[in-house]
Structure formats: C-alpha cells, structure tokens
Amino acid sequence: MDLFDRQLIFVVGKGGVGKTTVACSLALAAGRAGKKVLLCEVDGLSRAAQLLGVDAAEPGRAGRMVDGVSVMGIEGSAALAEYLGMVVPVRRFLQAVTQSELYQYFVAAASGLKELMTIGKIWYEAQRTDERGGGRQWDVVIVDAPATGHGLQYLRMPSAARDAFGAGLVRREAEKVVALLSDPKRTAIHLVTTAEEMPVNETVTMARRVREELRMPLGALFVNRLHTEQFRPADIDALLAAARSSRQRDTKLLLSEVASRAAEESGWTRLNKRYLRELERDVPIPRVELPFVFSEEFGRQQLLELVDQIEAAE
C-alpha cells in the first residue's frame, strides 16, 4: 500500500474518531521514510503540534522540522493577507486596504472566501519549490482536515470558486487547484473512522460524496481504535462462578472484575468486527486497521505504536 507517496494528502473524518492522531502518525511514518513532510492543521487549535510535542508557529509559517515533520497552522484571514501580499506588492497600499473597516466586512460578507484561501494556501505549499532551487519544498503535504461536514466544504471551495467567478485571476488559480486536487497521481483523500454505527454511516456517505460530488481520488481508509481480544463465554462464566464460590472478599472482587473487563472487551471486538464487515462492503478501498491504544495518557509513546502499525501497512 502506498500511504504517503503523494504530493498532497487530506485526512478527513467525523469528529472524535482520531483524525488528528492518524494525521500525526502518518506524518511521522512519512518522515521516518526520509520524506520532508509538512503537516497542516486548519482548525486553529494546534492539536497536532501539541500531540507531536512541538511549539506551534504563527499561522501560515512552517514550524521547526523535527523527525522530518514540520507543522503549520493555516488560518483563512492570514492566508488571504499573504495572498494579497503577493498580488499587491506595494506594502503601504496593501495596509491601507487590509486595515480598512470595509475590507473586514468584505471578508466577513464574502462567505467561503476564508475556506477558499485556506485551500489556496495548502495548494501553494504543495507545489512550492525549494528556495535553493532543485525540487519541491515539501515531499508531501498532509492536511488534518476539520470534522466531516466542514472538511468536505473546504474541499468543495476551489471548484465552487471556479464555477462562480468569471474569467479572472481567481478562476485561473482555482482551476490549477482543482487540477491538483483531482489528480490521483498527486493527491489522495484518506478517510478515518472507528468501527461503530454513526462514524461508519458517516464514512459511507463521505466516501460517496468524495467520489461523486467532489470527484477527488480516495486513498486509504483508516479504521481506528479497534478492539481485538475475544474471550470465550465459557471462560467468563467460569470466572463468575469462581467469584461466587470464593470465600475471600478480595479474590471474589478481583475475579468478577476480570470477568467484567473480559466481557466488555469481547463486546467491543464483536461490534468492531460487524462494522468492519460493513465498511468492507460499502467502502471498498485499501484499509489500514489501527488498534485501540490503552493508556493512562495518550502521548508520544502511544503515537509511536500507531506509527509502527502504519509502517507495517505501508
């Protein structure tokens, strides 16, 4: 499976399924494979930077590269200002414009403009050439997209802009962005889900929309937080029976708790299996299965466990 052999990768999924965790693991795996990676986050919370244990740089700037990965927070209005800086090179005039009240309202009123600029900035980074000449600045740009609904809205912006705006600079630029986003050789949309009812429903819808409405290339499906242990009901029953007959209070308690945790894990495993089958049927794309990582705190060590899994799948 090639998971990061693209110029641009979007990691998309419902809120709470571990999208940021997967995007970070993927970035670290690509970094280990010797790639120069830019990991972009667009929700303004710097969660990826936090998880990777690096300081978040100011919006629109790449942070210091650690293990081949540099993190950048992208923010719509900052991206717009940067873009205008390129279009309107005279600083004094530009300031007169961007600091005016009218400009602020204009940005607020032209809804969708910030999303468009965010994608524009991502595109800019993905095709940017190294200042010292030679190849591209980044081997791969990985985007931790906002939760489902909003994530797809971002992806929709360039083609919406292309269709809405008449001939002009924006239309020409939007066309370039759309060309990159819909090229399966250069771009992949990875989906993240857990094997549970609602995330699976949403993932099925999402996969269809990416294919049919956005016409963008789907990459792999990451199924996160999978439970895998299954205990025989006979063993669980035996534990409970032993708990009942035990005369020692501590042992009694321990046996029943071990039984209860075994039943809990088996229940999750069964449920996960059922939804994995649904995913196999309804979202037939390459799949990467990631385990539920039990921990007191989810930190770097836990992240590295997932990186190992991704490397094995790659």
């Binding site: 005039f93 809405a164 705006f165």
Partner: peptide
C-alpha cells in the same frame, strides 16, 4: 489605492 482595490475585486473575483 482605488486602483488597487479594483484589482482586488478582480483578483478575488468579487
């Protein structure tokens, strides 16, 4: 600045 603003309108398709 006025000319620039027209350019901005053109640039953003607005």
């Amino acid at each position: 600045a006025g000319a620039l603003l027209r350019r901005l309108e053109d640039a953003t398709g607005v």
